[in-house]
Design a protein around this nucleic acid. Structure first.
Length: 110
DNA sequence: CCACTGACGAGTG
DNA sequence: GCACTCGCCAGTG
């Protein structure tokens, strides 16, 4: 059990809170998990996610509103777009999501 | 220990 | 808006 594993769990817990039809950015997720300026950590945590977990990893995109291309040929980026479209998330002609319209804004409650 | 890479992002020109 | 640099952390060789 490495120290980073608990960091992963905190990242996953945040992602678990993203509702259907909304997206969050890697930087946003990291910040909400208590790791400001550690966007890459969020990406790494999602990459390490076990198969079949309830964490909606597909609702996390990069700061440009794009689905980050996978370099490992897994094709998960294509699957991600598919799942988002199924949730009625709209992509423009360049394959980008309007963050102004679909970004998740967590409600701050006392 | 060092170099390099990767589901990233802010800053600069 | 695009290309580039730098900062960040973890894993690999």
């Amino acid at each position: 059990m490495s120290a980073s594993e608990s960091a992963y769990r905190r990242i996953w817990a945040v992602v678990l809170g993203i509702p259907r039809g909304r997206v969050a950015t890697y930087g946003q997720v990291a910040r909400l998990a208590g790791f400001p300026n550690h966007a890459r950590l969020a990406g790494y945590a999602l990459h390490a996610l076990p198969d079949g977990s309830p964490v909606p990893w597909h609702r996390v995109v990069n700061a440009k509103g794009e689905v980050s291309p996978r370099r490992d040929g897994s094709g998960h980026d294509r699957l991600q777009r598919l799942m988002l479209k199924r949730e009625k998330v709209r992509f423009d002609g360049r394959g980008r999501i309007s963050l102004a319209a679909f970004r998740w804004r967590p409600t701050v409650r006392p």
